[in-house]
Design a protein around this nucleic acid. Structure first.
Lengths: 332, 332
DNA sequence: TTGAAAGCGCTAACAC
DNA sequence: GTGTTAGCGCTTTCAA
């Protein structure tokens, strides 16, 4: 059997209280006993039972991460970086894939609250306002990740989607494109990116036409179809902004099927700067997220809330970066 | 405060034992009390505290998944399918990324054993034999995933790598290629795939030359360099088998840099059949894994071990499938 | 500086 | 059928 705190106490000739105190570095214990207990714990290969201490109200060192779509490599990246940082800090990540399905989201949340995870990082859409307010009310530590809810007082770490959309579009404008389409899904982030797009057009004195914006599901095949509708217009755009790399690649595929060469006949730019950008031909220009920093920040913020019960709301917004590759070029 | 089993017992006018019995569906309880207790639990929105019951030796409904490399989309796929199945069964997945680093593997294992996860699915390399035997000795439920250890009595669910390697090579041979290279990493799976490759060559009466096999790290850039050495040979191969899609794409990039067109001047085939296959140009032929079945099987097997303490060793090996796309063609 | 003891929420053996 | 009770391994208050 694994040794318990009792075994240690017995061998050390002290009470469990004393052992507990040295484990948690609390109360005043003489250096001598401390020393001795450490040594005995070491010898007996003692490992505290996290369950028992959690039952007494301590934390479980587990964090749940809700992720919408594992098919999009950007989420694998987020997961990786969040897990990395969690690992450094002794926190494990419980991974929940949701497909943006509110039922799945709710199921995960209830289940994991039962299992007493210490907090949630939510990268999923989470349209269930009610559940969200419930979490806030119960003071469950939550940070929204990669999308925000400005209307709710809730912590978040996001990228500046507006600015990303602006930069992407501005880049296309700088290449003399005037008719620029955009393919997006109906997420909040995409709405922001579109806002950036519109704003960039306006700033350049171009008109933002409604029929240049098409919303669809965030799947490559859907994006391809959506791009098709744009490309089949008699007055087709000469450049398209895909609101994430998956969609941008869908656009490239639509172009290929129509024998339009990228970038000569159509410029395409994506968003997220995933590994996919460098394997397509031509390589895809994109907007890079500071994935590592985003992940780190989210965990750090959450753990801060967990451990210090810090409760001031923070909304961190990091700047994305334009990465120019070969899918965008001067309008011919 | 959240209601406990005591609260329910009090309201129902019974003892906690009775409530516990109806929760766990054990012992004989009259339908009337059962009914009543259910109703009260419902009304009070009672949720059993998993920690407390786990402290009594029950399971935590948590499974750890050790994954080597989140940059390879095949692992994101595995994770997704394993999580999906776990979700259906009420088990949460604790995700551990290891980079195949033995230290990280060990750290995760010890930490999560402390946290009392019910079992481990190990897709990481796990070269630490000692740790593995320790797990077996302590009867911790473990299933090896996507790679096996025939020499150790340990459950596993894998794909038939040998057969996959054989099929890939045979496909190239059927296209009249005679000089076929292979790029692989030093994992056990890849060794099997190479064994299949060698065997296919032999069956066709072709010689397997050592200098056609190059082992490197499983990164695109490394594979590209490795492929380069092959392609720069005066007697270069006319086809290359990349032991996973990442590496195969590295091969395609090496070819592009040398102005060799795929498939006309060089046929390339990958392994895993990830989404990447359909976004590269030309689309990459590959060997498809039954990802969904693999994931499901692994979880089901593990849970079986957890719940029934089933202890007979099983090694499940599933057949992969050849998917022909446009990166392979008849030798010109 | 240390210890006794109550209790976190639940389960299970045993008694009735 | 149902209740009593002793823990699971730990933390923490209070007393010494």
């Amino acid at each position: 059997m694994k040794p318990t705190i009792y075994d240690i106490a017995k061998v050390a000739g002290v009470s469990t209280a004393t052992v507990s105190k040295v484990i948690n570095n609390k109360g005043r214990i003489s250096d001598r006993t401390k020393e001795k207990i450490y040594q005995i714990m070491d010898e007996m290969r003692y490992r505290p039972n996290v369950l028992a201490s959690a039952l007494k109200g301590k934390c479980t060192y587990q964090i749940a991460l809700l992720i919408p779509d594992m098919d999009n490599p950007i989420y694998a990246q987020y997961l990786k970086h969040i897990e990395d940082r969690g690992q450094e800090l002794g926190f494990s990540i419980v991974m929940c894939s949701t497909d943006n399905n509110p039922e799945k989201e709710a199921k995960h949340i209830t289940l994991l609250r039962q299992k007493k995870v210490d907090g949630f990082i939510i990268a999923s859409k989470f349209s269930n306002e009610e559940l969200l307010s419930e979490l806030l009310q119960d003071e469950v530590p939550v940070v929204l990740f990669a999308h925000e809810r400005p209307e709710m007082a809730i912590d978040s770490v996001t990228v500046d989607d507006y600015w990303g959309g602006f930069m992407a579009t501005e880049h296309l404008i700088s290449l003399k494109h005037e008719k620029i389409g955009v393919i997006a899904d109906d997420s909040i982030s995409c709405r922001e990116r579109i806002r950036g797009y519109t704003s960039a057009l306006r700033s350049a004195g171009l008109s933002a036409e409604d029929n240049m914006i098409v919303i669809t599901r965030s799947k490559m095949a859907d994006a391809e179809i959506a791009a098709g509708t744009l490309l089949d217009l008699t007055d087709r755009p000469t450049a398209i902004f895909g609101c994430n790399d998956i969609m941008a690649i869908g656009v490239m595929q639509a172009a290929r099927k129509r024998h339009l060469t990228v970038p000569d006949e159509l410029s395409v730019i994506g968003f997220d700067n995933t590994q996919m950008c460098t394997i397509v031909v031509p390589e895809l220009s994109s907007i890079a997220m500071p994935v590592h920093e985003l992940g780190k920040k989210a965990i750090d913020m959450l753990i801060d809330k967990i451990e210090r019960q810090a409760n001031l709301k923070q909304n961190i917004k990091m700047p994305p970066q334009l990465v120019i590759r070969n899918s965008t070029s001067k309008k011919k």
